[in-house]
Amino acid sequence: MMKKIILLTALSISALFAQVKSSVEVPYIPFEIKMGKGFSTVQADCLMCHSFGYIINQGPQSRKFWRGKVDKMIEEFKAPIDKKDAKIIENYLFENYGNGKEQ
């Protein structure tokens, strides 16, 4: 009887950690994002590195804030976003996730 219990425990431990030995899958979360002018650019340029959750959970922000974020992605994180796209993304973010303030 004792042997059996030990065996069961051993089995349950290997089962618990088996998933890190094989590949794990992080679920995809369908964050609700607003449709709007420039959305397809946001989709193409932002999603490479992060989810929409990362955008919508920053809170409503000023144009200056969103411009700063886009600049940070380009300058610090080296995202290949050209000037035209950067402006489109900034406008989309401010129109949909702005606080109405320019500064």
């Binding site: 995809y28 369908p30 989709q43 959750g53 919508i56 959970n57 920053q58 809170g59």
Partner: peptide, 20 residues
């Protein structure tokens, strides 16, 4: 890109920040 159909769904994510 694998995540093609993300905008079709309207399931609310759990943590959206409300602007108030």
């Amino acid at each position: 890109m694998k995540r093609r159909d993300f905008f079709k769904t309207s399931i609310a994510a759990s943590a959206a920040v409300l602007s108030s």
